[in-house]
Design a protein around this nucleic acid. Structure first.
Lengths: 141, 141
DNA sequence: CGAAACCCGATGGTTTTAGTCGGGTTTCGA
DNA sequence: TCGAAACCCGACTAAAACCATCGGGTTTCG
């Protein structure tokens, strides 16, 4: 049960942008400086832009910025953008598959897990992460 | 963010065995009857056996049985056996990777998510699933 | 105008997934 | 004793997903 690198890179990038909020657009270069392959990161930021989580400024001196306050960007939104929605079983999507006895208790379990994981992800935001992190250094915002 | 079919098939099989607990060993044939490819299922049951979750009886009239009471078999144990432990980021495994500022708040988030998901999985057992399921029909045990 | 920077579709190598295959070994029962 | 039923197991494969890389396009600042 592993997360792909997309989710991880996406969160790194978003957290970086949250830390540099208000400093103008951040170039791909600077975001990638922490070790994410530049061209790959470009793709990922495209996903985040299409999901409405970052805005871009094109042209020279352009770059990326978060589109909302850090408190309003949840991990759920980021992960949905990067990895697609959680889907533990296609039985959740295509109900016709599920011709099992007992109203498929297995299905109920998938539902329960999906809900609780989504709830967990929705409860963490870039804002809360900034708070948890070096309170002495990040006094702004 | 998807679960592979292994986790799903594994849970189906374990739930089936829990339902037929006390009826003697269940053959691969009968477990696979619900639509899982027989030979593939055989592999998966091998994993469950090596993880100590099922016991087998070889030879004619042999088959598979759960090795403990349904209440003692959690989804966490099944998923660990089928998909390996949850690993949201290799940063959790190989600490040397993590040379980030602020003691890596991203890392803290992974830790928090891993813990809560494991807790959730540990809280669901085959026993609780049997209870949730058609109480009118499954009066035994 | 030209350099900086984002945009985007196509491609390629590697790994994982989802099975399949073929040949074992064990055990029951006639 | 023997054969069929059943599990055991390693090797193989096709397809998908993942993780990029490439090359060219567009936009904008100075």
């Amino acid at each position: 049960m592993k997360l792909s690198t997309r989710g991880k890179y996406g969160l790194y990038a978003m957290f970086y942008l949250a830390q540099h909020q208000g400093e103008g657009p951040q170039s791909l270069q600077s975001i990638a400086a922490t070790g994410v392959p530049r061209q790959y990161l470009e793709q990922l930021l495209g996903n985040l832009r299409r999901a409405g989580l970052v805005t871009t400024v094109r042209g020279a001196q352009g770059g990326y910025q978060i589109s909302k306050a850090p408190q309003e960007i949840s991990l759920l939104a980021i992960m949905d953008a990067m990895e697609g929605p959680i889907e533990l079983s296609e039985c959740m999507v295509d109900e016709s598959h599920c011709s099992r006895a007992c109203a498929c208790p297995v299905r109920n379990v998938w539902q329960q897990l999906t809900n609780s994981f989504n709830r967990e992800l929705a409860g963490i935001t870039l804002g809360s992460m900034l708070n948890d992190c070096c309170e002495s250094e990040a006094l702004e915002v």
